[in-house]
Design a protein around this nucleic acid. Structure first.
Lengths: 252, 252
DNA sequence: AGAGAAAGTATCACCCGTACACTAATGCTG
DNA sequence: CAGCATTAGTGTACGGGTGATACTTTCTCT
């Protein structure tokens, strides 16, 4: 409200630039506390569990009080996202490829720990300090390559989109599964049920897929996580191969 | 209720196998009508606009009547998804690469026309007839390659995930933008606002990015769609390059 | 001391999803 | 043809959500 630098309010709150005016009743609540409480609830109850009444109640306030600090629920989500993302770990690697691989896995770990993060709708380009820090880390890893900015940003968003997409997909499927059922079981069941509906004349490839060993043959004691990791790695390496081609091309 | 083939109810509805029992009061409403109405509302008001009361009202019924035909709102979403997806176009191409490219663009067109599709949470593996048809098309395109099933499925989900992710991202950003503001303008503004917050000591790469021409230099009369298409193509070709590497490797 | 400003509250209007108990309309059975 | 089982659609109610508006409270500055 004071500085006319024209940084919009949400951005100011994101970067912790709230100038608490010295006038009027002093606040007993502040953005950080609200956001932290909201994150805690999201961790426990998922994104849909985050409602203003619940956040407020967990702090001993009324829902409306939050609007003094966050503007809207959407803004709260943006703030939560950045806080929950946290700072990227230090990634030391000589190799861009190994670096990006580690970056992707680190990013994935964050999302796996807080699957609700993958469901927050983007309300703008990455703008929070932590989001920026993750971008910075990825760009630093690629700084040795000769890619131009457009390609770097392209590669970066491809990888991060892939991470988000795959964690979300996995967590959505996990939620839809019966309580005690593992992924392997569910897939087997899926294959069986669908195989009956898929007409081999109309869908020859799908029919062959279902009669393949892909859904049937998990060595049963393999933990789910191993299957998931293998799938994730497959896609990631494919992307990295693509980037490698680009780097080789721009190198010439 | 009759046939004991053990196809769960949602699947039966998806594939249009509802055996209208000849008993009792005959239905004036059926699944197809309900789903079609819901899709129409989603097209007009987005996914959040789809509520049982609204769908019912648009048909002249009460909300509760829908539960005779759809089980739950989640199931309605699943049904809507498959209907809205429609059948894939015929893609003739000798080349797997050209084929997958066309498949990706066709898929993207569908999502662009109905952005709400990208926000439907997955409630299970692809199971609807149209989803299966799209998979079939992609697998057919790859049938000439020597990839094993895991790699085919991996490539397929990577591409389709990429399509979904990029359309969703774009549409979320578009919604967050001020009414008449184009993408180019928004990006320029974004670069300016953020450049002030990004400390070049902490974020050297980001600082260089913001001082690059990437956000500043759109030849102003370039339509937004052109920028978006270029971004999309960049990522897609990168993925295709990755797949090419895999194919070449399994070819040897 | 008191004016004015900001923090937090109370109430309200509005909308959702869906459980439950109901009425209405039909085909089958006797 | 009667009435019963069965299915379709309705009415009501509950517990929840966002957020507008107008309020009381508590502080600082003059």
């Amino acid at each position: 409200m004071a500085s006319d630098d024209f940084v919009p309010a949400p951005l100011r709150r994101l970067w912790g630039l709230s100038e608490s005016s010295r006038l009027g009743r002093p606040a007993t609540l502040d953005v950080h506390v609200v956001v932290a409480a909201a994150v805690k609830i999201a961790d426990r109850d998922g994104l849909d569990g985050v409602t203003l009444p619940k956040v407020a109640k967990s702090l001993g306030f009324t829902s409306m009080s939050l609007y003094r600090h966050v503007g809207s629920k959407d803004e709260l989500l943006t703030l939560m996202t950045d806080v929950a993302l946290g700072l990227p770990p230090d990634i030391e690697a000589t190799d861009w490829r190994e670096g990006l691989r580690r970056w992707a896995f680190a990013h994935r770990t964050v999302f796996q720990r807080r699957p609700w993060l993958t469901r927050v709708p983007a309300s703008g380009p990455p703008s929070g300090p932590h989001q920026i820090a993750w971008m910075e880390a990825a760009l630093a890893i690629m700084s040795g390559t000769l890619l131009d900015w457009a390609h770097k940003i392209g590669a970066l968003s491809l990888i991060s989109g892939y991470v988000v997409q795959s964690v979300r997909l996995y967590s959505e499927l996990a939620e839809g599964r019966a309580e005690g059922q593992g992924q392997a079981d569910a897939e087997r069941e899926y294959g069986r049920a669908l195989a009956r509906l898929v007409n081999p004349d109309r869908f020859p490839e799908m029919a062959r897929l279902f009669s393949s060993t892909l859904f049937e043959a998990p060595p049963s004691d393999t933990p789910d996580q191993a299957i998931v990791d293998a799938d994730f790695t497959l896609g990631l390496e494919l992307i990295l191969d693509g980037i490698a081609v680009r780097i080789a091309r721009s190198d010439s």
